[in-house]
């Protein structure tokens, strides 16, 4: 069985420092693997634990530096790492990204059984790349998948929406977008890190996957950003420095009463 996991590196925004101008202080902001991608990887690894004969390929698109997230996935137990890295890929929107991912999968892992993605990336949160990828691969899709199981030679998936918990029978090939499950993604062990160090990451350019320049990146994207701006929300509210806690609490109580 062949499983493909699509992952993304994102800036670590959990502990943001602010400048005086209310903008983000970018110094020391590191890249991390998108949190939900850990759950997609863990889902693939659990199926591998169960079914044994499983090859897990991990795919990402990004700068060469994004290689570290593929190494991390291999350290966790995945088998192959494919890095789509080409200046031509830059500026891709979710459609162009999905198209590129669909192409690398059909070129390099055409006999895939399952493609797993994180439900959304914590930086953009469009949640569009996975569904778009399913459509471009022409296979069925389930989103918001909390758990995948294999029993009596059948795959099943549990999907959780705002209102429902749904149980599905799943045939392959299929694309599943994985959300946070009731389990902890595993941490790599020492031998995993050693294996990752010795595993060659396959670097692929636009021409390696037989795509034209105008199909990828900014050119291949049906959307474009016409304007980017910092919103100017000035809400001339009253700001007090807490010097005397008793006085502060008094003010707070009176404001709460006023507002409710």
């Amino acid at each position: 069985m062949k499983i493909v996991v699509c992952v993304k590196q994102i800036p670590d925004t959990t502990d943001i420092k602010w400048t005086e101008n209310h903008t983000i202080n970018r110094e020391g902001v590191e890249s991390v693997l998108n949190p939900l991608d850990f759950y997609a990887l863990e889902t693939a690894l659990q199926l591998k634990d169960k079914l044994r004969d499983v090859e897990i390929s991990v795919v990402t698109m990004g700068p060469l530096q994004a290689e570290f997230i593929l190494k991390r996935a291999i350290a966790m137990g995945c088998d192959r790492g494919l890095l789509l890295s080409d200046r031509k890929f830059a500026g891709a929107d979710t459609f162009a990204t999905a198209k590129t991912l669909a192409k690398v999968i059909t070129e390099k892992i055409p006999d895939f059984d399952m493609v797993l993605c994180g439900q959304f990336a914590a930086d953009g949160d469009t949640a569009q790349t996975g569904p778009s990828l399913a459509k471009q691969l022409g296979v069925s899709l389930l989103t918001y998948v909390k758990a995948v199981d294999f029993q009596d030679s059948k795959f099943s998936a549990t999907r959780e929406t705002e209102t429902n918990i749904e149980k599905y029978e799943v045939l392959t090939p299929v694309v599943l977008c994985i959300t946070q499950g009731d389990y902890e993604p595993r941490r790599p062990l020492i031998d995993g890190f050693i294996r990752a160090k010795n595993t060659n990451i396959e670097r692929l350019s636009c021409s390696d996957i037989k795509m034209c320049d105008d199909e990828v990146g900014l050119k291949g994207s049906p959307t474009y950003v016409s304007r980017a701006f910092t919103p100017n929300i000035e809400h001339a509210g009253e700001i007090c420095i807490n010097e005397d806690t008793e006085d502060t609490v008094r003010k707070l109580v009176s404001k709460i009463k006023e507002y409710v």
């Binding site: 602010w18 929300i233 509210g237 700001i239 420095i241 807490n242 806690t245 003010k251």
Partner: peptide
């Protein structure tokens, strides 16, 4: 943090340690 952007949105803001207040 007096520079936290939440104060741009707040109708009423306290710069101080929540654990004290």
């Amino acid at each position: 943090d007096k520079d936290a952007p939440i104060f741009k949105l707040a109708d009423f803001g306290i710069v101080g340690d929540a654990l004290e207040i």
